[in-house]
């Protein structure tokens, strides 16, 4: 599309990109499929079939309430993806806007925005998210908002740094000489030139959001029963850990695979997108 068809070939030649893309693809696909079909109803309890061992009927067995674990894992992907999409959108929208603003204004505006970001960034995010959720009240939406808020400074700092580098380029001076104002330059020149940096960060923040949501749900502050959630699965199986450790392994592996996939994808994207500009100069 960008006059460079080889970008797809380079993507496919990149091992982390392919691995990460596949894992992320599986995650998304699982979530999509679970919207219309799961082997069993992930919510329905069946007390006669508690803790059944894996079989063709129940691929991963059942939990202590007799629910099909494979189905819960599938439906849990929905929850993880929703959390990722919504919280990253919140963090990105506000963070990128603040970063671009700081970079365009410079001076004390930049100083103020960046010091506020540093301040937020310096706190252990998960602790603050717990605090925030504890204050706002527990629940999936509050958890998502809290996670989103704490990714704002990450995006703000990244955006501001990348944008400052763009503002120093000569084509910005040329744009000013051509009569463009700051807003126009930000939208037409700065933002398009930092998209690649942002895309990489988005995948990383997405992974972090999934982890954070799992942590909050594990603590009972995130998704509430009966919404299927990997974090809550871990919490619910805590008491069973010595009786049937596999119950904890399944959601753990699901979380790990998703996070790994997104991180690999981010690494791959960085390699595939960034050198394009560097090499073409």
């Amino acid at each position: 599309m960008e006059g460079q068809p080889s970008i797809w070939r380079r993507c496919l030649a990149h091992r982390s990109f392919v691995a990460g893309g596949s894992l992320t693809g599986v995650l998304v696909l699982t979530a999509l499929v679970s919207l219309v079909w799961t082997p069993w109803n992930p919510i329905k309890q069946n007390l006669r079939e508690r803790l059944v061992a894996p079989s063709w009927e129940h691929l991963l067995g059942t939990d202590q309430f007799g629910r099909d674990i494979f189905s819960i894992i599938m439906a849990g992907a929905q929850n993880s993806i929703t959390v990722g999409v919504v919280s990253v959108s919140i963090g990105m929208t506000f963070g990128v806007a603040l970063g671009l603003w700081a970079s365009a204004k410079r001076g004390w505006t930049e100083e103020l925005i960046m010091r506020a970001s540093d301040f937020m960034y310096a706190f252990p995010a998960i602790l603050l998210a717990i605090m925030l959720v504890a204050t706002l009240g527990q629940g999936a939406i509050n958890a998502i908002v809290a996670i989103g808020i704490f990714s704002i400074p990450v995006f703000a700092r990244l955006t501001r740094g990348a944008a400052n580098a763009i503002w120093a380029r000569e084509f910005i001076l040329a744009a000013r000489a051509a009569g463009k104002g700051k807003l126009r330059i930000t939208v037409e020149h700065v933002l398009p030139n930092i998209v690649s940096v942002l895309v990489v960060q988005i995948t990383i923040q997405f992974a972090l959001a999934i982890l954070a949501e799992a942590a909050l749900s594990f603590l009972g502050l995130g998704a509430q029963p009966p919404t299927p959630s990997w974090g809550r699965m871990l919490d619910e199986t805590r008491s069973m850990i010595f009786i049937n450790p596999w119950l904890a392994v399944y959601p753990g592996v699901a979380i790990a695979i998703s996070v790994l996939g997104l991180n690999l994808l981010g690494d791959g994207l960085r390699d595939v997108i960034d050198p394009r500009l560097a090499r073409k100069r």
């Binding site: 380029r169 000569e170 084509f171 001076l173 040329a174 744009a175 000489a177 051509a178 009569g179 104002g181 037409e188 020149h189 398009p192 030139n193 500009l277 073409k280 100069r281």
Partner: peptide, 22 residues
Amino acid sequence: RQLRRHFQMVFQDPFGSLDPRM
């Protein structure tokens, strides 16, 4: 800004003065 249409500039670096994404 409005007056700028009457005086324009050409820069030294033909690689740096054009936005690579346009």
